[in-house]
Nucleic acid binder design. Structure first.
Lengths: 177, 177
DNA sequence: GAACGATACCTCGACTCCGAGGTATCCTGT
DNA sequence: ACAGGATACCTCGGAGTCGAGGTATCGTTC
């Protein structure tokens, strides 16, 4: 299982040096409304990433009270960010919350072709034949249900896919121009 | 952390008795394209749910070869399903994959008012003021970025929310009629 | 009879994440 | 001086999940 917030940590630190607390707040803003991240997840991860040489820390006086850790991305961290952006784990392609995290930092890939390759993966995912329910080999559609909630499921999934597919195609055209 | 697939197990078994292998395939169809569930997650969970009295198992000859376990929801399991549908964990409201699981089985709540209450929670979630990025106290919008990917993030999130909000409102009207 | 493949279920060590509880620092108010 | 609050960071035991490896059963083929 891939670490959900590692990419966010790398991405935000690529944007700018940040204090741990600030970083926490930015991650919360990006994905926390869907899925909050506990301190118990973040701080050990920061520690681990420092140990792995992905980021460095220096202690500074706090803004109001407590001292704070200034976090900076190392060259190694930068490389790791680019690696993760270029070749993201499948869950970053399929799970919306993770996909949004990926989008938030994709500009840090210099190569439009690499950016396009990532978008293509998402496009393939969204355009693959899929259904939530099957009758043997036959995918069931909204009309197969007299249940408004299952109908809603299809309606929502179809509409949201359509919107995103449109954006993906349009953005891919720009990247190839 | 709430068990992601427990609701799916309860829901599918509420639909019909199923063999473990069939159940696995249905869950995979419902949510597996986004997030596949490992056997190591499912089978111990079935065991745990049996121990908790939520489901019962009886061994049957397999369709082709190996013997299979026929799984049936108990009255207790039924009650637990209704409890989870009526008062779902917050993550089932906010995380799309889980929300879809919830929608798939919401018809098993008899009370339209209880169904409506769940939809209202999702509506509140989708209509709350939110942004992915902030500048101090100010939420940033798509126009604040010249980065096409962050712009896309807002575009996609806004459009998909709009679609679902529309469906939610329409369905709530039907439930109240 | 043995090997293989398909069906069907299981375990285990490792990893990720949670939530509760905690520590540390500084400033303000009593 | 002490308590409380806000800022800022940390740990730990428990829960959920993964992926790899495994067992069991039956039918088919050689």
């Amino acid at each position: 299982m891939v670490i959900m917030i590692e990419l966010a940590v790398l991405g935000f630190l690529r944007d700018a040096q940040l204090h741990g607390y600030d970083l926490r707040k930015r991650i919360a803003a990006l994905t926390g409304h869907v899925r909050p991240i506990a301190d118990g997840t973040l701080y050990p991860l920061l520690k681990k990433m420092e140990a792995a040489g992905l980021l460095s820390r220096s202690l500074q006086p706090g803004q109001v009270a407590a001292p704070r850790q200034m976090l900076s991305l190392t060259d190694s961290g930068r490389t790791e960010l680019e690696r993760q952006l270029r070749d993201p784990d499948e869950l970053f392609i399929t799970d919306e919350n993770r996909w949004f995290t990926l989008l938030a930092f994709l500009r840090h890939l210099d190569d439009p072709a690499a950016q396009a390759a990532v978008l293509l993966r998402r496009l393939e995912f969204l355009t693959q034949p899929a259904s939530f329910f099957w009758d043997g080999d036959r995918p069931l559609r909204a009309v197969d249900f007299d249940d408004p909630f299952r109908r809603g499921l299809f309606t929502i999934a179809t509409a949201t896919s359509r919107t995103e597919i449109k954006w993906l195609r349009s953005t891919l055209e720009q990247l190839e121009a």
